[in-house]
């Protein structure tokens, strides 16, 4: 939606940036439609689609029945028939009922039809913990979808990246799962160009350069890692990488960094075992074996069910756990 005075003066939140990307792309491309539960008049439960229905009408910003598989499956059909649907699944926990359509159909169609039928769509999903939400509103399932050939999995951590990555995702010819870390939705504002720009899928970002250790993370954890950096001794130099795209993985950015530093700590909210950190750690030992000075460390969610919110801060990796792991890895 057009910028408010506050946005002009203080910058955009992550929510604002995604809304602006949707607004601009819907203006540019009449094939783009948004659909999901409460995305229309109500603007979505997080207000990400606020105001869009008023501008683009009931036909392009669609309040659907409460039916995740229905949303995903009909969006697949829309995409097959030449539209550019952007289904919203209200919370990551509700990807469950839509899993079959996403994984067994959207992801496979290009392959199983040898390119005759494709599914260009972006599935928007708020993700992760830290907002005192009810059960099944705080999980981090990105590794499940990164393990699915045919899907691309994105998770921006900043308003600037969110806009540019979403525009890339909508223009991508393949199905993209666009995870939006809800903890960061409104946590701060950032200057975001008003014009059209894209950030390529599959490109990580070096947030801070450093020489002693590489810290790899994505989503809301980028901010915990940033906080951790502030607590480290002055003489410790850490390189912070925000993956941005989880699949396909930007191997080059990671190995270039680890070849330089020889040490790596990976941080993610999702449970440790078979989390995406395992993939990164393996990639590092495959490429950088002789450069390693310490075992690659993972600071992750515990291998438990995500607790209700009274205990969620203890579950989520925080700056303290991150800085401790960094210091231990440096001491090895």
């Amino acid at each position: 939606m057009p910028r408010t005075e506050q946005m002009i003066a203080q910058g955009l939140t992550l929510v604002d940036a995604i809304n602006e990307a949707l607004y601009q792309e819907m203006e540019r491309d009449s094939r783009v439609v948004c659909l999901g539960e409460d995305v229309g008049l109500n603007g979505g439960v997080f207000r990400v689609t606020e105001g869009l229905q008023k501008v683009f009408g009931l036909e392009r910003v669609i309040d659907t029945p409460l039916s995740e598989s229905g949303i995903m499956g009909s969006a697949i059909g829309l995409a097959m028939a030449g539209m550019r649907p952007i289904p919203e699944i209200q919370f990551e926990g509700f990807l469950g009922p839509a899993y079959d359509q996403l994984v067994n159909h959207a992801a496979r169609y290009r392959t199983r039809s040898r390119g005759a039928v494709t599914v260009p769509m972006v599935v928007r999903v708020p993700v992760g913990g830290g907002i005192h939400a009810p059960e099944l509103h705080s999980d981090s399932p990105e590794a499940i979808y990164a393990h699915t050939p045919g899907l691309k999995v994105l998770m921006p951590s900043t308003p600037y990246d969110a806009k540019g990555m979403l525009l890339s995702a909508i223009r991508d010819p393949d199905p993209v799962v666009f995870f939006e870390p809800k903890r960061v939705y409104r946590s701060y504002r950032q200057e975001v160009p008003e014009g059209d720009y894209t950030i390529p899928i599959g490109q990580a970002k070096v947030v801070a350069e450093g020489r002693d250790l590489t810290l790899v993370t994505w989503g809301a954890s980028v901010h915990q890692c940033n906080d951790a950096l502030d607590t480290l001794p002055e003489d410790v130099s850490v390189e912070l990488i925000d993956l941005r795209t989880i699949a396909p993985l930007d191997v080059d950015t990671i190995i270039q960094s680890v070849e330089k530093t020889g040490r790596c700590v990976i941080v993610h909210e999702a449970p440790k075992t078979a989390g995406f950190g395992a993939e990164i750690a393996t990639t590092i030992q495959e490429y950088c074996f002789l450069h390693l000075k310490a075992p690659v460390q993972r600071v992750a969610g515990f291998d438990t069910i995500m607790p209700y919110y009274k205990l969620e801060q203890e579950y989520l990796p925080d700056a303290k756990r991150v800085s401790e792991a960094v210091m231990q890895c440096l001491a090895y």
Partner: peptide
């Protein structure tokens, strides 16, 4: 399954019942 251009159909669907949503979406686009 490589449906020729101009032939308006999806390939066979092996799992049961999932394809009706695709038909719904395709007709919705129309």
């Amino acid at each position: 399954n490589q449906i020729p251009k101009g032939v308006c159909q999806l390939p066979l669907c092996i799992p049961i019942g999932t394809q009706m949503l695709h038909a719904t979406g395709i007709a919705w686009a129309f």
